[in-house]
Each structure stands twice: as structure tokens, then as C-alpha cells.
């Protein structure tokens, strides 16, 4: 990041190579749309360039990056609030195949995965976000607390409540499917 602060574009390319995958996954879990997620990832890196002076030397780079990512997501969703964004609950998702599984097991696992993804997409945004940050981004609680601007203890409770809410939505969806 120091190189980017000094105006070196090669530094931005290095940051991109290191962080674009987790950022893509962050956005894709939030909005469920791979095309939009790719646009958002790009936007984050160019905002880093634009706001490079706001990064404080010695600060947590991931926390700073995800703060930019959050703002990028919020700004984009605000601009596109009248658009119908494809994806979300019904978006297709590649799944790893296992040779030992029978066809029935595979179908059952696929259905469970799909239900879980739909439940995740139905979580209120703030719950989904804390869950994505804690479960998929390998961030420490201190970093999540910095990103969300709250206490570490609050993050822990929010994560648990988000998991609990996810379970409730999942159970509801499973009941609907069984009817």
C-alpha cells in the first residue's frame, strides 16, 4: 500500500492480485450477482487509488479495504435501486463433485446448499454482511469491529445472531419446500 500511496500503479496491481478473489467473494455473497460483483471489485481498487491518502500508515489494510468495499456496495446499490439486479436467490452456483456420493446424496446436498444460499440471500443486509465478513473473509474480530465501527464483543454477538437468523430462515424455507 505504501507504493500506491507514493503513486506507483504497479503497487495497485500487486494489491489487486492479492485481494481481488476474496473481495469478489465478499460482493458475490452480498449481492448474488457475479457481473455486478466484478464491477464492484474493480471500483474498490480504483477508489483505493483515489483515496490513497486516507490510509494511515501502520493501520490495518484489510479493514481499510473493506470499509471502501462497503461504501462502494452501498453507493452502487443506492444508484441502482430502481433496477432489477439478476442473481440472488436463484443464481446458479458451481458445486464441487464428490465421486463417492450417490446420485441421491448429491441431489440432497445440492438442495441443502441451494436452500442455505437462499436463506443467506434473505438475511437482512446488516446480518448478511457480518456473517460474510466473519465466515468467508478470514478477518479477525478486531478488523471486523473496525470495519463496522463497533466493539469486538458486539461483533461476536451479531455474528451469533446472524447465524441464528439464518437457521430460522433456512427452517422456514425447508418447511415451504416440504409442503
Amino acid at each position: 500500500m505504501e507504493r500506491v500511496r507514493q503513486g506507483e500503479l504497479a503497487g495497485l496491481a500487486a494489491l489487486f492480485e492479492r485481494h481481488h478473489r476474496p473481495l469478489f467473494q465478499y460482493f458475490n455473497h452480498l449481492c448474488g450477482n457475479p457481473d455486478l460483483s466484478r464491477d464492484l471489485v474493480q471500483e474498490v481498487f480504483f477508489r483505493m487509488l483515489k483515496y490513497k491518502d486516507s490510509f494511515q500508515a501502520g493501520g490495518s489494510f484489510p479493514a481499510w479495504m473493506y470499509q471502501i468495499a462497503r461504501h462502494t456496495h452501498v453507493d452502487t446499490m443506492r444508484k441502482r435501486r430502481f433496477e432489477v439486479i439478476p442473481g440472488g436467490a436463484d443464481s446458479p452456483f458451481p458445486e464441487p463433485a464428490s465421486r463417492e456420493e450417490s446420485a441421491d446424496d448429491r441431489l440432497s446436498r445440492r438442495q441443502q446448499t441451494e436452500l442455505l444460499r437462499r436463506a443467506l440471500n434473505r438475511l437482512p443486509p446488516e446480518k448478511r454482511e457480518v456473517l460474510v465478513l466473519s465466515r468467508f473473509q478470514n478477518l479477525r474480530y478486531e478488523q471486523i469491529a473496525e470495519i463496522l465501527d463497533c466493539e469486538v464483543g458486539t461483533v461476536k454477538v451479531r455474528v451469533f445472531r446472524a447465524v441464528r437468523a439464518l437457521g430460522e430462515i433456512y427452517s422456514e424455507l425447508a418447511r415451504q419446500r416440504a409442503c
Binding site: 469478489f24 442455505l116 443467506l120
Partner: peptide, 15 residues
Amino acid sequence: LYWNALGALPAPEPG
């Protein structure tokens, strides 16, 4: 159970 299930969700690739 849900926490563990989330961890098993496949990670999408940006392409």
C-alpha cells in the same frame, strides 16, 4: 450446524 454448513459453501471464482 449452520456455521459449519456455511463453511462448506463453494467459493465462487471471479473468472
